[in-house]
Design a protein around this nucleic acid. Structure first.
Lengths: 199, 199
DNA sequence: TTCATCCGTTCGTTTTGACGAACGACGGTT
DNA sequence: AACCGTCGTTCGTCAAAACGAACGGATGAA
Protein backbone atom coordinates (compact mmCIF):
# COMPACT_ATOMS: atom_id res chain seq x y z
CA UNK A 1 0.00 0.00 0.00
CA UNK A 2 1.09 3.52 -0.63
CA UNK A 3 1.80 5.79 2.28
CA UNK A 4 0.34 9.14 1.56
CA UNK A 5 -0.52 9.71 5.18
CA UNK A 6 1.51 10.82 8.15
CA UNK A 7 3.12 8.04 10.11
CA UNK A 8 2.14 6.99 13.55
CA UNK A 9 -1.47 6.04 13.95
CA UNK A 10 -3.89 5.74 11.12
CA UNK A 11 -6.66 7.25 13.18
CA UNK A 12 -4.60 10.23 14.14
CA UNK A 13 -3.53 10.60 10.55
CA UNK A 14 -7.12 11.01 9.49
CA UNK A 15 -7.94 13.43 12.25
CA UNK A 16 -5.02 15.76 11.76
CA UNK A 17 -4.40 17.83 8.69
CA UNK A 18 -2.88 15.19 6.50
CA UNK A 19 0.71 15.36 5.40
CA UNK A 20 1.48 18.68 7.03
CA UNK A 21 3.57 18.09 10.12
CA UNK A 22 4.93 21.60 9.88
CA UNK A 23 1.63 23.25 10.69
CA UNK A 24 1.03 20.78 13.47
CA UNK A 25 4.28 21.42 15.28
CA UNK A 26 3.87 25.12 14.69
CA UNK A 27 0.67 25.08 16.71
CA UNK A 28 2.09 22.65 19.22
CA UNK A 29 5.13 24.77 19.89
CA UNK A 30 2.97 27.76 20.69
CA UNK A 31 0.66 25.66 22.83
CA UNK A 32 3.43 24.05 24.84
CA UNK A 33 5.21 27.32 25.25
CA UNK A 34 2.13 29.01 26.65
CA UNK A 35 1.48 26.00 28.82
CA UNK A 36 4.90 26.55 30.30
CA UNK A 37 4.13 30.23 30.70
CA UNK A 38 7.23 31.35 28.87
CA UNK A 39 7.87 34.03 26.29
CA UNK A 40 9.18 33.25 22.86
CA UNK A 41 12.34 35.12 23.68
CA UNK A 42 12.87 33.17 26.87
CA UNK A 43 12.31 29.78 25.27
CA UNK A 44 14.70 30.60 22.45
CA UNK A 45 17.30 31.72 24.95
CA UNK A 46 17.01 28.57 27.08
CA UNK A 47 17.00 26.31 24.05
CA UNK A 48 20.04 28.02 22.69
CA UNK A 49 18.47 28.88 19.37
CA UNK A 50 17.83 32.21 17.73
CA UNK A 51 14.49 33.66 18.55
CA UNK A 52 14.03 34.46 14.90
CA UNK A 53 14.18 30.75 14.23
CA UNK A 54 11.56 30.01 16.84
CA UNK A 55 9.39 32.82 15.60
CA UNK A 56 9.38 31.37 12.13
CA UNK A 57 8.69 27.89 13.41
CA UNK A 58 5.69 29.02 15.41
CA UNK A 59 4.33 30.84 12.41
CA UNK A 60 4.48 27.68 10.34
CA UNK A 61 7.29 28.99 8.17
CA UNK A 62 10.29 26.74 8.35
CA UNK A 63 11.47 23.21 8.46
CA UNK A 64 13.37 22.67 11.67
CA UNK A 65 16.32 20.35 11.94
CA UNK A 66 16.28 17.50 14.41
CA UNK A 67 18.72 19.28 16.69
CA UNK A 68 16.54 22.35 16.80
CA UNK A 69 13.43 20.35 17.55
CA UNK A 70 15.26 18.39 20.21
CA UNK A 71 16.47 21.52 21.94
CA UNK A 72 12.92 22.84 22.03
CA UNK A 73 11.53 19.57 23.36
CA UNK A 74 14.09 19.64 26.14
CA UNK A 75 13.37 23.17 27.26
CA UNK A 76 9.61 22.70 26.96
CA UNK A 77 9.88 19.38 28.75
CA UNK A 78 7.65 17.84 26.14
CA UNK A 79 8.10 14.50 24.39
CA UNK A 80 8.39 14.50 20.66
CA UNK A 81 5.02 12.90 20.19
CA UNK A 82 3.27 15.69 22.03
CA UNK A 83 4.29 18.10 19.33
CA UNK A 84 2.48 16.06 16.73
CA UNK A 85 -1.01 15.64 18.13
CA UNK A 86 -3.56 17.92 19.78
CA UNK A 87 -5.38 17.20 23.07
CA UNK A 88 -9.03 16.82 23.95
CA UNK A 89 -10.59 15.24 27.05
CA UNK A 90 -14.19 14.77 28.13
CA UNK A 91 -16.24 12.50 30.27
CA UNK A 92 -17.65 9.44 28.58
CA UNK A 93 -19.46 6.46 30.03
CA UNK A 94 -19.99 3.09 28.36
CA UNK A 95 -22.29 0.72 30.22
CA UNK A 96 -21.53 -2.95 30.57
CA UNK A 97 -23.99 -3.88 27.82
CA UNK A 98 -23.09 -1.01 25.52
CA UNK A 99 -20.30 -0.17 23.16
CA UNK A 100 -19.08 -1.46 19.84
CA UNK A 101 -18.25 -5.13 19.96
CA UNK A 102 -15.07 -5.65 18.05
CA UNK A 103 -14.51 -9.37 17.98
CA UNK A 104 -17.26 -11.92 18.34
CA UNK A 105 -15.89 -14.74 16.27
CA UNK A 106 -17.83 -17.09 18.43
CA UNK A 107 -20.32 -16.05 21.02
CA UNK A 108 -17.86 -17.15 23.68
CA UNK A 109 -15.45 -14.24 23.25
CA UNK A 110 -16.47 -10.63 23.09
CA UNK A 111 -14.16 -7.63 22.99
CA UNK A 112 -15.68 -4.18 23.35
CA UNK A 113 -13.66 -1.16 22.37
CA UNK A 114 -13.88 1.30 25.23
CA UNK A 115 -11.35 3.87 24.10
CA UNK A 116 -9.89 3.59 20.63
CA UNK A 117 -6.52 5.01 19.86
CA UNK A 118 -6.98 8.78 19.63
CA UNK A 119 -4.34 11.23 18.49
CA UNK A 120 -1.84 11.54 21.28
CA UNK A 121 -2.16 8.07 22.66
CA UNK A 122 -0.92 4.78 21.47
CA UNK A 123 -3.23 2.32 23.09
CA UNK A 124 -6.64 0.76 22.79
CA UNK A 125 -8.73 -0.25 25.80
CA UNK A 126 -11.07 -3.21 25.54
CA UNK A 127 -13.50 -4.95 27.82
CA UNK A 128 -13.29 -8.72 27.41
CA UNK A 129 -16.19 -11.03 28.16
CA UNK A 130 -15.45 -14.67 27.55
CA UNK A 131 -16.87 -18.12 28.24
CA UNK A 132 -14.97 -21.38 28.58
CA UNK A 133 -14.51 -23.26 25.35
CA UNK A 134 -11.88 -22.91 22.71
CA UNK A 135 -9.02 -20.60 23.50
CA UNK A 136 -8.99 -17.27 21.76
CA UNK A 137 -5.69 -17.21 19.89
CA UNK A 138 -4.39 -13.95 18.48
CA UNK A 139 -1.88 -13.54 15.72
CA UNK A 140 1.07 -11.30 16.51
CA UNK A 141 0.38 -7.62 16.03
CA UNK A 142 2.83 -5.04 14.83
CA UNK A 143 6.26 -5.18 16.46
CA UNK A 144 6.59 -3.60 19.87
CA UNK A 145 2.97 -3.94 20.92
CA UNK A 146 2.52 -4.68 24.63
CA UNK A 147 -0.73 -5.97 26.04
CA UNK A 148 -1.95 -5.53 29.61
CA UNK A 149 -4.76 -7.60 31.09
CA UNK A 150 -6.49 -7.32 34.46
CA UNK A 151 -9.06 -9.96 35.36
CA UNK A 152 -12.29 -8.63 36.77
CA UNK A 153 -14.17 -11.85 37.34
CA UNK A 154 -13.72 -15.54 36.62
CA UNK A 155 -10.47 -17.18 35.65
CA UNK A 156 -8.49 -17.19 32.44
CA UNK A 157 -5.32 -18.49 30.84
CA UNK A 158 -3.60 -15.46 29.37
CA UNK A 159 -0.27 -14.64 27.78
CA UNK A 160 2.19 -15.62 25.13
CA UNK A 161 1.39 -19.01 23.67
CA UNK A 162 3.22 -21.65 25.64
CA UNK A 163 3.91 -19.35 28.56
CA UNK A 164 0.38 -18.34 29.42
CA UNK A 165 -0.47 -17.79 33.08
CA UNK A 166 -3.66 -18.72 34.87
CA UNK A 167 -5.18 -15.61 36.33
CA UNK A 168 -7.96 -14.95 38.80
CA UNK A 169 -9.87 -11.82 39.85
CA UNK A 170 -7.55 -8.88 40.34
CA UNK A 171 -4.60 -10.56 38.69
CA UNK A 172 -2.61 -8.59 36.17
CA UNK A 173 -0.40 -9.68 33.31
CA UNK A 174 1.69 -7.84 30.76
CA UNK A 175 3.16 -9.56 27.72
CA UNK A 176 4.54 -8.78 24.27
CA UNK A 177 1.70 -8.59 21.78
CA UNK A 178 3.91 -9.09 18.78
CA UNK A 179 4.05 -12.80 19.44
CA UNK A 180 1.23 -15.34 19.22
CA UNK A 181 -0.85 -15.17 22.39
CA UNK A 182 -4.02 -16.53 23.88
CA UNK A 183 -6.98 -15.65 26.05
CA UNK A 184 -8.83 -18.70 27.28
CA UNK A 185 -11.62 -18.38 29.80
CA UNK A 186 -11.61 -21.09 32.43
CA UNK A 187 -14.83 -20.15 34.15
CA UNK A 188 -18.20 -18.94 32.89
CA UNK A 189 -18.73 -15.18 32.68
CA UNK A 190 -15.08 -14.32 32.79
CA UNK A 191 -14.49 -10.57 32.55
CA UNK A 192 -11.29 -8.65 31.93
CA UNK A 193 -9.85 -5.35 30.86
CA UNK A 194 -7.31 -5.47 28.05
CA UNK A 195 -5.10 -2.63 27.02
CA UNK A 196 -3.17 -2.93 23.79
CA UNK A 197 -0.29 -0.52 23.74
CA UNK A 198 1.49 0.40 20.52
CA UNK A 199 5.11 1.50 20.51
CA UNK B 1 14.42 21.95 37.60
CA UNK B 2 16.89 22.23 34.83
CA UNK B 3 16.45 20.22 31.70
CA UNK B 4 19.76 18.73 30.75
CA UNK B 5 18.14 15.54 29.57
CA UNK B 6 16.45 14.55 26.35
CA UNK B 7 12.71 15.12 26.34
CA UNK B 8 10.05 12.49 26.51
CA UNK B 9 10.53 10.06 29.31
CA UNK B 10 13.19 10.37 31.91
CA UNK B 11 13.77 6.65 31.98
CA UNK B 12 14.36 6.50 28.27
CA UNK B 13 16.70 9.41 28.61
CA UNK B 14 18.82 7.48 31.02
CA UNK B 15 18.78 4.33 28.95
CA UNK B 16 19.68 5.97 25.67
CA UNK B 17 22.88 7.78 25.02
CA UNK B 18 21.99 11.06 26.60
CA UNK B 19 21.47 14.12 24.47
CA UNK B 20 22.33 12.43 21.20
CA UNK B 21 19.17 11.84 19.25
CA UNK B 22 21.18 11.80 16.06
CA UNK B 23 22.86 8.51 16.82
CA UNK B 24 19.60 7.03 17.96
CA UNK B 25 17.69 7.82 14.80
CA UNK B 26 20.66 6.74 12.76
CA UNK B 27 20.43 3.25 14.20
CA UNK B 28 16.64 3.30 14.10
CA UNK B 29 16.55 4.21 10.45
CA UNK B 30 18.76 1.29 9.54
CA UNK B 31 16.76 -1.03 11.77
CA UNK B 32 13.38 0.00 10.37
CA UNK B 33 14.64 -0.12 6.83
CA UNK B 34 15.90 -3.66 7.24
CA UNK B 35 12.68 -4.58 8.98
CA UNK B 36 10.87 -3.46 5.86
CA UNK B 37 13.31 -5.39 3.73
CA UNK B 38 14.19 -2.43 1.54
CA UNK B 39 17.46 -1.14 0.18
CA UNK B 40 18.76 2.28 1.00
CA UNK B 41 18.36 3.26 -2.61
CA UNK B 42 14.76 2.11 -2.69
CA UNK B 43 13.78 3.89 0.51
CA UNK B 44 15.37 7.11 -0.66
CA UNK B 45 13.54 6.84 -3.96
CA UNK B 46 10.16 6.24 -2.32
CA UNK B 47 10.70 8.97 0.23
CA UNK B 48 11.71 11.37 -2.48
CA UNK B 49 15.03 12.24 -0.93
CA UNK B 50 18.54 11.85 -2.25
CA UNK B 51 20.11 8.58 -1.31
CA UNK B 52 23.23 10.44 -0.35
CA UNK B 53 21.17 12.18 2.29
CA UNK B 54 19.85 8.93 3.64
CA UNK B 55 23.29 7.38 3.56
CA UNK B 56 24.66 10.15 5.73
CA UNK B 57 21.71 9.94 8.11
CA UNK B 58 22.15 6.24 8.65
CA UNK B 59 25.83 6.74 9.30
CA UNK B 60 25.06 9.21 12.04
CA UNK B 61 26.41 12.13 10.05
CA UNK B 62 23.82 14.78 9.59
CA UNK B 63 20.99 16.62 11.17
CA UNK B 64 17.82 15.88 9.23
CA UNK B 65 15.08 18.41 8.76
CA UNK B 66 11.57 17.65 9.89
CA UNK B 67 10.39 17.19 6.32
CA UNK B 68 13.11 14.68 5.64
CA UNK B 69 12.34 12.74 8.79
CA UNK B 70 8.65 12.83 8.05
CA UNK B 71 9.13 11.47 4.56
CA UNK B 72 11.19 8.62 5.96
CA UNK B 73 8.64 7.85 8.65
CA UNK B 74 5.92 7.68 6.02
CA UNK B 75 7.77 5.35 3.68
CA UNK B 76 8.95 3.17 6.54
CA UNK B 77 5.45 3.19 8.03
CA UNK B 78 6.94 3.89 11.43
CA UNK B 79 5.67 6.36 14.01
CA UNK B 80 7.98 9.10 15.06
CA UNK B 81 8.44 7.70 18.51
CA UNK B 82 9.72 4.41 17.18
CA UNK B 83 12.75 6.19 15.84
CA UNK B 84 13.61 7.49 19.26
CA UNK B 85 13.23 4.56 21.61
CA UNK B 86 14.47 1.01 21.28
CA UNK B 87 12.07 -1.84 21.92
CA UNK B 88 11.80 -4.14 24.90
CA UNK B 89 8.75 -6.09 26.03
CA UNK B 90 8.43 -8.99 28.41
CA UNK B 91 5.79 -10.90 30.25
CA UNK B 92 5.05 -9.83 33.80
CA UNK B 93 2.37 -11.05 36.18
CA UNK B 94 1.18 -9.30 39.35
CA UNK B 95 -1.19 -11.36 41.50
CA UNK B 96 -4.26 -9.88 43.12
CA UNK B 97 -2.54 -9.64 46.50
CA UNK B 98 0.81 -8.50 45.19
CA UNK B 99 2.29 -5.29 43.89
CA UNK B 100 3.21 -1.93 45.37
CA UNK B 101 0.30 -0.26 47.06
CA UNK B 102 0.39 3.37 46.17
CA UNK B 103 -2.39 4.98 48.12
CA UNK B 104 -3.81 3.59 51.32
CA UNK B 105 -4.85 6.75 53.09
CA UNK B 106 -7.50 4.76 54.84
CA UNK B 107 -7.80 1.02 54.67
CA UNK B 108 -10.91 1.51 52.54
CA UNK B 109 -9.10 2.62 49.40
CA UNK B 110 -6.13 0.84 47.90
CA UNK B 111 -4.45 1.60 44.60
CA UNK B 112 -1.83 -0.80 43.31
CA UNK B 113 0.50 0.30 40.57
CA UNK B 114 0.46 -2.41 37.91
CA UNK B 115 2.45 -0.73 35.16
CA UNK B 116 4.20 2.55 35.84
CA UNK B 117 4.96 4.93 33.08
CA UNK B 118 7.79 3.32 31.11
CA UNK B 119 9.76 4.87 28.32
CA UNK B 120 7.55 5.26 25.30
CA UNK B 121 4.28 5.34 27.16
CA UNK B 122 2.45 8.06 28.99
CA UNK B 123 0.13 6.22 31.29
CA UNK B 124 -0.02 4.45 34.62
CA UNK B 125 -2.23 1.44 35.27
CA UNK B 126 -3.66 0.84 38.74
CA UNK B 127 -5.82 -1.75 40.37
CA UNK B 128 -8.32 -0.16 42.75
CA UNK B 129 -9.78 -1.97 45.72
CA UNK B 130 -12.21 0.10 47.75
CA UNK B 131 -14.78 -0.24 50.49
CA UNK B 132 -17.83 1.93 51.12
CA UNK B 133 -17.22 4.82 53.43
CA UNK B 134 -15.89 8.25 52.68
CA UNK B 135 -15.44 9.10 49.05
CA UNK B 136 -11.92 9.14 47.73
CA UNK B 137 -11.45 12.65 46.37
CA UNK B 138 -8.49 13.41 44.14
CA UNK B 139 -7.00 16.77 43.48
CA UNK B 140 -6.59 17.70 39.82
CA UNK B 141 -3.46 16.34 38.22
CA UNK B 142 -1.39 18.02 35.57
CA UNK B 143 -3.37 19.52 32.71
CA UNK B 144 -4.47 17.16 29.98
CA UNK B 145 -4.55 14.02 32.07
CA UNK B 146 -7.37 11.64 31.19
CA UNK B 147 -8.45 8.84 33.48
CA UNK B 148 -10.16 5.64 32.42
CA UNK B 149 -11.97 3.37 34.88
CA UNK B 150 -13.55 -0.03 34.34
CA UNK B 151 -15.42 -1.60 37.23
CA UNK B 152 -14.59 -5.23 37.88
CA UNK B 153 -16.84 -5.90 40.86
CA UNK B 154 -19.13 -3.98 43.16
CA UNK B 155 -20.50 -0.51 42.48
CA UNK B 156 -18.91 2.90 42.61
CA UNK B 157 -19.55 6.58 42.05
CA UNK B 158 -16.81 7.77 39.70
CA UNK B 159 -16.00 10.87 37.74
CA UNK B 160 -15.56 14.58 37.91
CA UNK B 161 -16.87 15.98 41.17
CA UNK B 162 -20.50 16.89 40.77
CA UNK B 163 -20.91 14.89 37.58
CA UNK B 164 -19.90 11.49 38.88
CA UNK B 165 -21.67 8.46 37.47
CA UNK B 166 -22.75 5.35 39.33
CA UNK B 167 -21.08 2.37 37.75
CA UNK B 168 -21.52 -1.36 38.07
CA UNK B 169 -19.50 -4.37 36.94
CA UNK B 170 -18.23 -3.95 33.38
CA UNK B 171 -19.10 -0.27 33.20
CA UNK B 172 -16.50 2.09 31.81
CA UNK B 173 -15.96 5.79 32.31
CA UNK B 174 -13.45 8.26 30.96
CA UNK B 175 -13.08 11.75 32.38
CA UNK B 176 -10.60 14.61 32.52
CA UNK B 177 -8.19 14.04 35.37
CA UNK B 178 -7.14 17.64 35.57
CA UNK B 179 -10.27 18.53 37.47
CA UNK B 180 -11.28 17.43 40.96
CA UNK B 181 -12.73 13.96 40.82
CA UNK B 182 -13.92 11.18 43.08
CA UNK B 183 -13.99 7.44 43.50
CA UNK B 184 -16.55 6.32 46.04
CA UNK B 185 -17.28 2.64 46.55
CA UNK B 186 -20.95 1.88 47.06
CA UNK B 187 -20.61 -1.79 47.81
CA UNK B 188 -18.11 -3.83 49.82
CA UNK B 189 -15.14 -5.25 47.94
CA UNK B 190 -15.46 -2.97 44.97
CA UNK B 191 -12.74 -3.59 42.39
CA UNK B 192 -11.71 -1.51 39.40
CA UNK B 193 -8.96 -0.85 36.90
CA UNK B 194 -7.83 2.73 36.57
CA UNK B 195 -5.62 4.04 33.83
CA UNK B 196 -4.18 7.51 34.17
CA UNK B 197 -3.11 8.85 30.84
CA UNK B 198 -0.75 11.81 30.56
CA UNK B 199 -0.88 14.05 27.50
C1' DT C 1 35.26 -13.17 -19.98
C1' DT C 2 32.27 -8.99 -20.76
C1' DC C 3 28.28 -6.56 -19.90
C1' DA C 4 24.49 -5.04 -17.12
C1' DT C 5 22.47 -3.90 -12.67
C1' DC C 6 22.10 -2.98 -8.37
C1' DC C 7 24.17 -1.80 -4.01
C1' DG C 8 26.05 1.99 -0.71
C1' DT C 9 29.45 5.70 -0.34
C1' DT C 10 31.90 10.15 -1.61
C1' DC C 11 32.36 14.73 -3.65
C1' DG C 12 31.11 19.35 -5.55
C1' DT C 13 27.10 22.40 -6.09
C1' DT C 14 22.91 24.59 -4.74
C1' DT C 15 19.28 25.38 -1.75
C1' DT C 16 17.82 26.70 2.80
C1' DG C 17 17.68 26.67 7.82
C1' DA C 18 19.84 29.08 11.68
C1' DC C 19 21.80 33.14 13.17
C1' DG C 20 22.19 38.05 14.89
C1' DA C 21 21.07 42.79 14.42
C1' DA C 22 17.62 46.01 13.90
C1' DC C 23 12.84 47.09 13.97
C1' DG C 24 8.07 48.74 15.77
C1' DA C 25 4.78 47.86 19.52
C1' DC C 26 3.46 47.60 24.20
C1' DG C 27 3.65 48.43 29.35
C1' DG C 28 5.70 50.23 33.51
C1' DT C 29 8.74 53.92 35.91
C1' DT C 30 10.52 58.21 36.84
C1' DA D 1 6.27 63.86 28.60
C1' DA D 2 10.83 60.85 28.06
C1' DC D 3 12.90 56.59 29.30
C1' DC D 4 13.47 51.75 30.06
C1' DG D 5 12.86 46.88 29.32
C1' DT D 6 10.65 43.09 26.96
C1' DC D 7 7.72 41.42 23.61
C1' DG D 8 7.56 39.20 18.70
C1' DT D 9 8.73 40.04 13.84
C1' DT D 10 11.68 41.03 9.61
C1' DC D 11 15.88 41.04 6.88
C1' DG D 12 20.70 40.04 5.21
C1' DT D 13 24.55 36.83 5.95
C1' DC D 14 26.64 32.34 6.58
C1' DA D 15 27.03 27.57 7.57
C1' DA D 16 25.06 23.35 6.64
C1' DA D 17 21.46 20.14 4.80
C1' DA D 18 19.86 18.22 0.59
C1' DC D 19 20.84 17.33 -3.93
C1' DG D 20 22.81 14.97 -8.20
C1' DA D 21 26.57 12.82 -10.52
C1' DA D 22 30.16 9.77 -10.33
C1' DC D 23 32.55 6.22 -7.96
C1' DG D 24 34.11 1.22 -6.56
C1' DG D 25 32.31 -3.16 -5.33
C1' DA D 26 29.19 -7.27 -5.56
C1' DT D 27 26.15 -10.11 -8.17
C1' DG D 28 24.25 -12.44 -12.10
C1' DA D 29 23.31 -13.19 -17.13
C1' DA D 30 24.93 -13.45 -21.87
Amino acid sequence: MANTDPPGEAVAAAAIKSGAPLDVIAASLRRERHRAGLSLTEVARRAGIAKSTLSQLESGTGNPSLETLWALCVTLDAPFSRLLDPPRPETHVIRADEGPTVAAAQADYQATLLAGCPPGARRDIYRIAAEPGHARASEPHTPGVVEHVVIGAGRALVGVAGQAAELGPGDYIRYPGDRPHVFEALEPRTQAVLMSEHP
